Amino acid sequence: MNNFKQIFLLLVFFCFSQSGFSQVGINTTTPMSTLDINGNLSLKTVVLIGSGSATIIDDGVYISINPQATDQEFKLPSAILFPGRVYIIRNINNTNTAKLTSAGGMLFPKNSTVGTIDIYMYEGNLRTITVISDGSNWTYIN
């Protein structure tokens, strides 16, 4: 009976350890990455309207922000709490500047070691940016 338990536990361990190295393919029979998609990808889109207090960004991937006044604040979640999180953010207002801040971590432009606590998004300057959490801070690409 003791050998049966050991063999059973060994099989269970083998099955679960193999699933840790699995690859998933969508529309492909030979995935080459952890997730391999052969086709189109759709992302959740959200429109956020600015308000008197900071508008929290907590849903969606492609986010259209619409400030109702100049320098209205839109706040990213903490980069520390959401490592690997990616947002694509676009200021869709043609007249008002949006102020982008973070609940945790600084904002760093790509290829820079100098961060800031906020960035301003307006026509001609950072109209659309992609932000990526590294687990400590946000890196932004325009």
Results as ranks from 00 to 15, higher is better:
M1F: 05
N3E: 14
N3L: 10
F4M: 08
K5I: 13
K5Q: 09
I7Y: 06
F8G: 01
F8R: 13
L9P: 00
L9C: 08
L11K: 14
V12Y: 03
V12T: 10
V12G: 01
V12P: 01
F14A: 11
C15H: 12
C15V: 15
Q18C: 11
F21C: 10
F21A: 02
S22V: 11
V24H: 14
V24C: 08
G25A: 01
G25I: 04
I26K: 10
N27K: 11
T28G: 12
T30H: 09
S33D: 06
S33T: 11
S33L: 10
L35R: 05
D36V: 02
I37Y: 04
N38S: 09
N38E: 09
G39W: 08
G39P: 05
N40Q: 09
L41G: 06
L43W: 05
V47C: 08
V47H: 09
I49G: 08
G50D: 03
G50M: 06
G50F: 04
G52Y: 01
G52F: 03
A54Q: 04
T55L: 13
I56Y: 07
I56E: 13
I56P: 00
I57H: 03
I57D: 02
I57S: 06
I57A: 03
D58K: 04
D58P: 00
G60N: 10
V61I: 13
Y62H: 09
I63L: 15
S64Y: 14
I65D: 13
I65N: 11
N66M: 08
P67E: 00
P67N: 00
Q68W: 09
Q68G: 06
Q68L: 12
D71Y: 07
Q72W: 07
E73C: 13
F74A: 09
F74W: 12
L76V: 12
F82E: 08
F82M: 09
P83G: 13
G84F: 03
G84A: 05
V86H: 09
Y87P: 11
I88C: 14
I89C: 04
R90A: 10
N91A: 02
N91S: 10
N91Q: 05
N93E: 14
N93R: 12
T95S: 11
N96F: 15
N96H: 15
T97V: 12
T97W: 07
K99T: 10
L100E: 04
L100G: 03
T101H: 01
T101I: 04
S102V: 00
G104W: 01
M106N: 14
L107Y: 01
F108Q: 03
N111G: 00
N111F: 05
N111Y: 06
S112L: 11
T113N: 12
V114S: 15
D118N: 09
D118P: 00
I119L: 11
Y120T: 12
Y120H: 08
M121G: 06
Y122L: 12
E123Q: 15
R127D: 09
I129G: 08
I129L: 05
I129P: 07
I132N: 05
I132R: 04
D134Y: 02
D134C: 06
G135P: 05
G135Y: 07
G135Q: 12
N137L: 02
N137Q: 07
Y140K: 05
Y140N: 03
I141S: 12
N142M: 01
